[in-house]
């Protein structure tokens, strides 16, 4: 019982440390709109939209590769309109907004 807990603490700590350090040194300045949209998407990573995971779709939406959020089948309609509104209103680093239909 005690050995298991010690082994798990060490393993958890080592992996947590690894991820923490990676997160700090490997921070990539990502356009925060992408993160915001990824959080709003359902995160099933089901790939139904053809992109691998919701972060892929969010990136495509932000840099204009995709014009409408409806590509994400499982998300609810009100989520789609919220995303479209958010993207059409908040300007990106270069100041432009994108035009996206729900």
């Amino acid at each position: 019982m005690v050995t298991t807990i010690i082994v798990m603490i060490i393993l958890g700590a080592v992996l947590g440390l690894g991820l923490g350090v990676a997160d700090k040194f490997l921070k990539v300045e990502v356009d925060e709109r992408v993160e915001k949209v990824t959080a709003m998407l359902p995160n099933y990573n089901c790939g139904g939209c053809g992109y691998a995971g919701c972060s892929g779709l969010a990136e495509a939406l932000v840099n204009g590769e995709v014009a409408s959020v409806s590509l994400c089948k499982p998300s609810k309609p009100e989520v789609k309109t919220a995303i479209a509104e958010y993207l059409n209103t908040t300007p990106g680093p270069d100041g432009t907004c994108c035009k996206v239909k729900p």
């Binding site: 393993l11 958890g12 992996l15 690894g18 991820l19 990676a22 997160d23 040194f25 490997l26 921070k27 990539v28």
Partner: peptide, 16 residues
């Protein structure tokens, strides 16, 4: 636990 962390780590390394 190892697999989940490993994949997340690899994703970060490749991203950077």
């Amino acid at each position: 636990l190892v697999i989940a962390s490993l994949v997340q780590l690899t994703e970060m390394i490749i991203k950077k």
